[in-house]
């Protein structure tokens, strides 16, 4: 079948090799076309559109003759104290969440990788990963009610243990803490899984020789295990940075930015601008956040490249 096909096709073109090559390329273009169209229509175009709208007057943004206002939207946003505090809050939140999630994930991974835990390891992994994959809207709503003063099990449990009640989302400080905890519950499973993969690749002989040299558990963890976890720490930190910088769903579901704007993070702030038809300001904020995320990703790639060369 194959040889005759080649002969037939070769004879169809004056220059068989080139002809076949062109046809082969054409097929590859056809294979790529749907993906390219989807990326262009629902990726590149909206990003370009977002940047364009950031430079237009909100009232005319969607009309046929938009009025361009230069950097006015950026200036307006950057002059707002509300934007400053929301950016500051987002950065603090991201910083705390990244540290909490990455260190918790290391602890969980080391616990789950323990050789004595062979039976039931699948169940433990399943339990910790379940929140990652289930609809976040549903689990955040459940958490919102768990912190509720009347129905909530959190306060009921605290009272049962003789501890003071937790204000949950009713007060600025505790609302912030609530979001950190709920988001950690939601995300830590993914980071744990990545650490578990890394732990499987550890060089056991290093640990054994350190043990022979008389190093205790803690010393072995700090000087033997942790340095070998560096790839997973880097990946997870970058992942968590991106994830928490754009925190949105949990705010939308649980606090709506409140109370008293204490959880009004950048992406939610941009959304509320969009929702009140302030398209120019909304996309200006989106562009600023994009630049921050892009800078973080670029810096971490640079850092990883540098690490590889060492």
């Amino acid at each position: 079948m194959s040889s005759s096909a080649t002969i037939n096709r070769s004879s169809a073109f004056s220059s068989p090799r080139v002809g076949q090559r062109n046809w082969e390329y054409a097929t590859l273009y056809i294979f790529l076309a749907p993906f390219a169209v989807l990326t262009a229509l629902f990726g590149i175009w909206p990003i370009a559109e977002s940047i364009r709208v950031a430079f237009t007057d909100s009232y005319t943004a969607l009309s046929d003759s938009p009025v361009y206002v230069g950097l006015d939207n950026f200036r307006a946003v950057l002059a707002e104290p509300a934007f400053h505090s929301s950016l500051w809050r987002t950065l603090v939140y991201t910083f705390l969440s990244v540290i909490l999630n990455v260190s918790m994930a290391i602890g969980l991974a080391i616990l789950l990788a323990h050789p004595r835990l062979s039976r039931g390891r699948t169940f433990f992994k399943l339990a910790i990963f379940l929140p990652v994959i289930t609809p976040d809207v549903a689990s955040f709503i459940v958490w919102k009610w768990m912190f509720n003063q009347n129905f909530g099990v959190v306060n009921q449990a605290l009272l049962g243990l003789g501890l003071p009640p937790f204000a949950g989302v009713t007060q600025p400080g505790s609302a912030f803490v609530t979001l950190v905890l709920v988001e950690a519950w939601h995300h830590v499973g993914l980071y744990t899984l990545i650490f578990l993969t890394n732990l499987q690749l550890l060089d056991k002989s290093l640990d054994e020789s350190a043990q022979i040299d008389g190093a205790d558990r803690w010393q072995r963890f700090i000087h033997v295990t942790l340095p070998q976890l560096r790839p997973a720490i880097t990946i997870n930190t970058v992942y968590a940075l991106i994830e928490f910088l754009k925190t949105f769903t949990v705010i939308f579901v649980i606090t709506k930015g409140g109370p008293n704007f204490s959880t009004n993070f950048v992406s939610y702030y941009a959304y509320s601008k969009f929702n009140s038809a302030q398209y120019g300001e909304a996309t200006a904020i989106a562009t600023i956040l994009f630049v921050i995320v892009f800078a973080v990703v670029a810096a971490s790639y640079w850092y990883m490249e540098k690490g590889d060369q060492r």
Partner: peptide
């Protein structure tokens, strides 16, 4: 192949854009 690299980079750029914020311009599109 010509354009193939640009498609790859376009896609990588798209996923770097905060997804929640991409939805706003997706509304315009």
């Amino acid at each position: 192949l010509p354009l193939f690299t640009s498609v790859r980079y376009s896609f990588l750029l798209t996923i770097m854009y905060p997804h929640m914020l991409l939805v706003i311009p997706l509304y315009f599109v």
